[in-house]
Design a protein around this nucleic acid. Structure first.
Length: 561
RNA sequence: GCGCCCGUAGCUCAACCGGAUAGAGCACCGGCCUUCUAAGCCGGCGGUUGUGGGUUCGAGUCCCGCCGGGCGCGCCA
């Protein structure tokens, strides 16, 4: 709807150019948007306000000309000029009826668009190192990343979900030492306990399994516990596989699955790190100083140059990160979204600088970063800081077990990523009207309930008859619901272009509200068959859109509560 | 000290790449179950959008200063 109005306005502008009312080069990034209040119609455009200068006239006069030049369209009932020069569009009821029919016809595909045109988008998220259980911050990353992936898919992109992890660095070394210490019977606080060790109880589990000769498999790698507390390599491989398996189990419980698990070590093994360094050196963006190799990241906006290869010959962490993103580019990711905790934002500038320094045509705004702020967990009005199990934090598993998958996902997705999030456990687990997840799910279930009731009364719903009599739906609740439904494709588009999946969550709440309000104001199962079929047709459409939207959030749409 | 993010109702948050009278939920107050599920609906209360300037037809949104919160500033990852 919005797009077609935009087209009409463009046509009107073109016509005014031909008539020389507007200069030939007149163009403006005008918008067509939903109005806030019904008295301003359904949509409005600011085109006249923005083009008035070009036309050397006042906005209202230009608005008059634009309206006169607007092509006829049966979808539009009325056009008005208001305020400083807004053009308000009042849509014909038939436009909304057409949208309801489209929902029935497209069903699960309603709201999807083809703007991605089958190009590939890579979404990297979570990317936790296998040194411990996933915590609530990873949960937020998982919810946001997975939802972005779903939204991009709905916009016609071929999406690859990618999880990158370090399986061989310093932190993994600490992990191995920690497990080894546990295997030797040490505990945190003991005199010989390693300095940078991980202290969580789970380390003891790993050590015990290792000593028992258990076998674990994760990401295609299998390890059997070698039972030898002196074999640090064996311990490392076993511990990484164990923790990766645990993380995968948590992610599976959260409804998140990845297409690619990318090991940092593979970048070294496949020579990708060396290739990357060679290219950077070859393009003249590096220099040697103090026995180290530096990248001139200041040439690309960083505030100081960065060491790539330390004087001890090893690379700093961002080098494989550049090699990794280069790999994404080589694999044809037209868009690459990298979802990170905001505590990593310091590394963005140097990774982007490294990618630019490759001189291989990577756009400046590639990859796109989505950073999320920290999550504070509250219970009983107090901040929850300690989870004894994990050593220091609230685990994702704790939340899923206590709150449930759907509510956890919803709460972690419903806020804009760049604002700090307070996760109130009591609210999330409350099965009451305080809880927006249930509110939305209830709206979906409510329609199912009406259909069951219809069945119990032995009344058949004639869909075609209903869709042929949508003109019978003329009360304010029906209009409001149809308007709300018609917004859905715009929301799907906006969520993708701004990479803000919280828009979906917010929209669904509004849609649920429109449906609940309608339910209370009117009986759907009435004697008048045409009206009844039309009303059922409307609420089934609403149910469909609720289901489609919940699916984008990865939240279940239940038939009953 | 420098950089990035944030600051909106008592609380948690929206506000569609500058638009018209800043909106929801919770909390609080008051109504609605003989009805397709009350996990619901309706009404009310509640705001100098942290603050001071600036840009323009128009600013919560953009620019600058200040205040407050978070994060980052390593030949650590």
């Amino acid at each position: 709807m919005k797009d077609s109005l935009h087209q009409l306005v463009l046509q009107a502008i073109a016509r005014l150019r031909e008539q020389a009312v507007l200069p030939a080069d007149a163009a403006a990034a005008f918008v067509v948007e939903r109005t806030r209040s019904a008295e301003h119609g359904d949509f409005a455009t600011n085109a006249a306000l923005l083009l008035a200068k070009h036309a050397r006239t006042n906005p209202r006069a230009l608005a008059q000309a634009l309206v006169a030049a607007l092509p006829q369209n049966p979808q539009i009932a009325k056009v008005e000029i208001a305020g400083p020069g807004f053009i308000n569009f009042f849509l014909a009821a038939a436009a909304y009826h057409g949208e309801v029919r489209r929902i029935h016809a497209d069903a699960a595909k309603y709201g999807r668009n083809a703007s991605g045109a089958g190009r590939t988008a890579g979404v990297e998220f979570v990317s936790a190192n296998p040194t411990g259980p996933l915590h609530v911050g990873h949960g937020r990353a998982a919810a946001i990343g997975d939802c972005i992936a779903r939204v991009l898919d709905a916009n016609g992109w071929v999406v690859k979900r990618e999880f990158y992890y370090n399986d061989a660095g310093v932190q993994i070394g600490n992990l191995a030492l920690s497990v080894q210490a546990r295997a030797r019977g040490l505990k945190p606080g003991d005199a010989d306990w390693p300095t940078d060790a991980y202290n969580g109880d789970y380390i003891a589990d790993v050590a015990q399994a290792y000593l028992a000769g258990a076998s674990v498999e994760a990401d295609g790698h299998a390890f059997v516990g070698a039972k030898d507390a002196n074999d640090l390599d064996a311990i490392r491989g076993f511990a990484v596989a164990w923790l990766r398996r645990e993380q995968n189990a948590d992610l599976a419980a959260f409804g998140v699955a990845f297409d690619v698990y990318f090991l940092e070590s593979s970048l070294y093994a496949d020579g990708k790190v060396d290739e990357t360094v060679r290219e950077l050196v070859g393009h003249g963006h590096t220099y040697e100083e103090g026995g180290a190799l530096w990248l001139k990241t200041t040439d690309f906006g960083d505030d100081k140059d960065r060491v790539m290869r330390k004087s001890d010959g090893t690379f700093t962490y961002f080098v494989p990160d550049v090699a990794y993103h280069r790999s994404k580019w080589q694999r044809g990711y037209v868009r690459a979204i990298t979802e990170l905790g905001s505590d990593h934002h310091g590394s963005l500038a140097r990774v982007k600088a490294g990618l630019q320094a490759l001189d291989c045509g990577i756009p400046k705004d590639w990859p796109e970063y989505v950073l999320h702020q920290m999550v504070t967990v509250m219970r009983g009005g107090e901040e929850v800081k300690l989870s004894k199990r994990a050593g220091s934090y609230v685990t994702l598993r704790d939340l899923i077990d206590e709150v449930g998958r759907d509510a956890t996902r919803y709460f972690l997705i419903a806020r804009k990523a760049d604002s700090q999030l307070v996760f109130d456990i009591d609210l999330a687990r409350s099965q009451s009207n305080d809880n927006p997840v249930y509110y939305i799910q209830y709206a979906h279930a409510r329609v199912a309930s009406v259909l069951r009731q219809l069945d119990e009364r032995g009344i058949a719903w004639n869909r075609d008859n209903g869709l042929a009599h949508l003109a019978r739906l003329d009360n304010e609740h029906e209009s409001a619901l149809m308007t709300q439904l018609s917004r859905y494709p715009e929301i799907v588009e906006a969520a993708a272009s701004s990479l803000e999946p919280h828009l979906i969550a917010q929209y669904l709440r509004e849609l649920a509200n429109a449906l609940h309000a309608y339910y209370h104001a009117h009986q759907f199962i009435v004697d008048d068959a045409d009206l009844r079929d039309a009303r059922i047709g409307l609420i089934v459409a609403a149910q469909q859109v609720l289901r489609n939207g919940l699916d984008l959030l990865g939240v279940w749409a239940p038939e009953s509560m």
